[in-house]
Design a protein around this nucleic acid. Structure first.
Length: 454
RNA sequence: GUGGAUGUAGCUCAGUCUGGUUAGAGCACUGGAUUGUGGUUCCAGGGGUCGUGGGUUCAAGUCCCAUCUUCCACCCCA
């Protein structure tokens, strides 16, 4: 058989020990903070039935789903008339019924509905797992990446929104990343569309607001007109497009503009309530109303959140929001949820760029016993046991090879101390301990060594 | 999905424009200087289907086409 060059699929990565200790550092911190706020862990399968996934993420999302081919002779059951390439959409639905999960929120909703009788509501869970998207990879975008989700489902209280902001603030403050939390509300966006007389065009309008910084007022207006929105409606949007000012002014402007829209006013009230709760708390990060924040996932109905890192160019590192009826599709009505998702891979990239990982994360072995030979091996094995029982991570070099090789091993692995036990030490019942940083060495008893390293 | 760049040793890259002996460097690796001492130094050595497939040519790492990979921008997103 010809030797083939090993490789992994586009947009996926191996995580070596260097990456893993740093990734675990992030995961451990998020887990700890989530737990502190009363969230419990959950895991769901890597794959879901396509019926669970399709239609939840918009048209774009459906395209980005990884589909899994049915097992066995998957073509045998397809009618010959549908095997033609022209029929690919129809064909696809018959040869594939499972897909890799696209996010953690939809499988979570599925779980909640399926287990509704075992769950005590409000249900607070966190979930740290990989998700897959068939996107074209680029900076900070992977086809397999990890999300750390926290959600609370079964409560409409805005305290949950506030709690998510607190969690976000705490996690990033521990990690050392300066962030800006951007908040908006789908009800406000719906109100804006309603006020323009274009209630159905909320997404189009929001995308246009989003482009104002990049393209400028004229181009945005042009694009709106081109996409079939009448001049009269576009005119009504101008105050928002041309707006500049702080949070208070923004809220005042919205109240004024959306006075005729019940849903819009509700959204504004929600925003105000959240900020009122926040005002009494000690939040380090900047929290800003961003009217251009839309978020593509079409299950959001209330607050929407996004986090971006300051001082570094990277897409959003967190995103989330409230979904009033995600469980409705699976047959459980009137259960509102809200959650936020931490993008572990982007957070990792940001921390690497800003050099925020603490030193010494990968040091595992504190002490290495050099292997001098058969008798020494046996003797060291007992010492090793004693050292480990004292809680010190230690190992013996498994092969009786040249000392130089063993020292290089210790050095490359960042082992802090090396124990040298040969004939002399065995007679004296001592251990020669070498400090790999200073190069100094001294003869100690086992007890003295344990005291020193503990 | 659209547009642009990229691919040469395990890694980072030179060589490609202007085709012509045996394709180079640094790092890493192996052995030695040093048989109980690593991280510094010195010496020696191994390692390449030049991403893959096709074409042009007396001759292709170098020119042409296709394809894949990675990266960047757009779209969208974590």
């Amino acid at each position: 058989m010809a030797v083939q060059k090993p490789s992994i699929p586009k947009g996926t990565r191996d995580f070596g020990p260097y990456e893993m200790v740093r990734r675990n550092y992030i995961f451990n911190i998020t887990r700890k903070v989530f737990g502190k706020y009363g969230y419990l862990p959950l895991e769901t399968p890597a794959m879901e039935n396509l019926s669970t996934l399709l239609g939840k993420y918009g048209e774009e999302g459906d395209k980005l789903l990884f589909r899994i081919l049915n097992s066995g002779d998957f073509l045998s059951k397809v009618a010959p008339s549908e095997k033609s390439l022209l029929n690919s959409q129809k064909l696809l639905s018959q040869i594939s019924e499972k897909g890799l999960k696209y996010d953690l929120t939809v499988p979570f909703a599925r779980y909640v509905v399926q287990h509704r009788n075992e769950i005590t509501f409000p249900f607070k869970r966190y979930q740290i797992q990989p998700v897959w998207r068939a996107d074209r990879p680029q900076k900070g975008r992977y086809r397999e990446f990890f999300q750390c989700d926290v959600d609370v489902i079964g409560s409409k209280s805005l305290l949950s929104e506030v709690e998510l902001i607190q969690i976000t603030d705490e996690v990033f403050s521990i990690l050392g990343i300066d962030i800006k939390i951007k908040i908006n509300n789908r009800k406000v966006l719906a109100g804006v569309a309603e006020m323009m007389g274009e209630a159905g065009q909320m997404m189009k309008i929001t995308i246009a607001i989003d482009k104002i910084d990049k393209m400028g007022l004229e181009k945005v207006n042009e694009e709106l007109l081109q996409s079939g929105i009448p001049q009269k409606a576009v005119d009504k949007l101008q105050p928002i497009l041309m707006f500049s000012g702080g949070r208070e002014e923004k809220l005042a402007l919205l109240k004024n503009l959306l006075a005729g829209s019940e849903i819009g006013m509700k959204g504004v009230a929600e925003l105000e309530q959240v900020f009122s709760y926040l005002s009494g708390l000690n939040i380090h990060s900047e929290v800003e109303i961003d009217l251009s924040l839309a978020r593509g996932l079409n299950y959001y109905t209330g607050a929407i959140l996004e986090v971006e890192a300051m001082n570094v160019k990277m897409g959003s590192i967190c995103g989330g929001g409230r979904y009033d009826d995600l469980t409705g599709i699976f047959g459980l009505k009137d259960v509102s949820g809200v959650g936020i998702s931490f993008g572990a891979d982007r957070i990792y990239d940001v921390m690497l760029q800003l050099d925020l990982f603490p030193a010494g994360l990968e040091q595992t072995t504190q002490l290495l016993f050099v292997n001098f030979g058969e008798k020494e091996e046996e003797y060291c094995l007992k010492l090793l046991d004693g050292v480990r029982k004292a809680g010190i991570s230690a190992e013996i070099y498994p092969d009786r090879v040249k000392m130089k090789k063993q020292m290089i091993y210790a050095n490359n692995k960042n082992v802090k101390f090396v124990a040298l036990v040969g004939e002399n030490e065995m007679l004296e019942k001592k251990i020669t301990l070498k400090d790999m940083v200073t190069g100094e060495q001294e003869k100690l008893t086992l007890d003295e060594l344990v005291m020193k390293l503990k």
